[in-house]
Design a protein around this nucleic acid. Sequence first.
RNA 1: GGCGUCGUGGCCGAGUGGCUAGGCUGGGCUCUGCAAAAGCUCCUACAGCGGUUCGAAUCCGCUCGAUGCCUCCA
Length: 490
Amino acid sequence: MELFKTNQLKIYNSLSKSKEIFKPVLEGNVGMYVCGPTVYSNVHLGNVRTFMSFDLIFRYLKHLGYKVRYVRNITDAGHLTDDDSEDKISTKARLEKIEPMEVVQKYTVDFHTILQKLNFLPPSIEPTATGHIIEQIEIIKDILAKGMAYEINGSVYFDVLKYNETENYGILSGRNVEDTIENTRSLDGQSEKKNPQDFALWKKADESHIMRWPSPWSDGFPGWHLECSAMSTKYLGKTFDIHGGGMDLKFPHHECEIAQSNVNNHVHPVNYWMHANMLILNGQKMSKSTGNYILPNEIFTGENKILNKPFSPSATRFFMFQANYRSILDFTSAGLEASEKGYLKLIEAINKLDKIEVAATSTIDIKAWKQKCYDAMNDDFNSPVLIAQLFEAVKYVNLLIEKKETLTAEDLEEFKSTIHMFVFEVLGLQNEVKQNSTDKISGVVEMLINMRKDARDNKDWALSDKIRDELSSLGIQLKDGKEGTTFSVN
RNA sequence: GGCGUCGUGGCCGAGUGGCUAGGCUGGGCUCUGCAAAAGCUCCUACAGCGGUUCGAAUCCGCUCGAUGCCUCCA
């Protein structure tokens, strides 16, 4: 029987601002859409955190036995710059004097490389905005036909005020349009829009603009908000289960998606809206201009001014999951160092699992422990609590090896498989310790351990300590236990 | 200014009304030739001020602070 039938999953829904029991549209199936990156520069670390949260969610849903279709788009057109007239990709292409598609290619590759290093699962579909121009044009036609948009000078805008007469523009973000009007009154009236809060569905391209597609209104390009509506509808249907993204996309991006779908399909597009919170760096907002900024790859190489040392992808992943996805997370060197130690402790315990011997009786209630792990994840993907339970398991491992606790063969098997499943399959961590110590090294170290044992038996402390210290300086730590000496490679 | 999110011990972070996670750091003890590892243990907190309640970190109000969106930066 699938696990989802026995596990009651609760998800915090940004729309209702409360935890709700998760019920997919189609039993056993989950449709999930997450707003992907705009590929006009290296992927932002905060963005990585958002995607990592949804990687965890994707992994856990799959683990529960759901058939998940996970769509995460690539925005390669339509995301406008501040003056609201030029596409971000185009701007970058002009600045670097390369083709827009070169910009897209370069940063898409960067994005995938970083995610691969961090052991992300690829989404089921990764559609691009430029690959769905036709679908977007069809939606614009429909919205125009329904009278909720207007054309001016070859551009098409969504009529927010008119929409708000019958629907609620602000249902997700808690804004009301009247306030928005007052607060935007001071902006200059250069825009051709009827109202400042109207957003673009189609923008006419000026002569210098390289990225352009023909449409009934002009040669131009689609608005940013539209691509997500087009692609989510195409691959997941008019109403689907989960829509995710960073907290910063709640308004206006997701609000606009809701408006578009409400007009286009006459339904609210999403049952569960999920928003990952922000990542800050040393207590401050990340900002390129102030230098309080770090690229994901610089974490791994250590080539940065923020952190004291490099950190591995798994240590970084572990650090991120020690906080709940809905909390603001402060990215600091001290925090990463603490997490790295915790991660190594966990992995070392996992690598020691085979040393546990089977006993006739169990002194630990493995089923109760396992249930706590599931309870944590079922409670809105509470990874910090899951990790706390995994540290309980670390304690068990050490006590079991010392024979202060015992497990039957059946319980031991369940214990091992549960640990492996949560650590590697659900959290997506990698066993970096194991990768470092090859069998050849193990053989050599074992030999030295035996030599040291002889020295110790002869009370030749000078030789024994020399072996220990020299191995230590090579990054190999010896650990004397009741059952003999073991080692770990740092 | 408006709309959100949040403010927990030396640090990081769970916890939504009573049973007070976990990690890192530091102290003590056990084990050990010594150390490390491991086990046990200690330091016990909820921004401030009011209120509701038999009882609040948890609910309500106000104040202060952080952060996000509203304006390019995830």
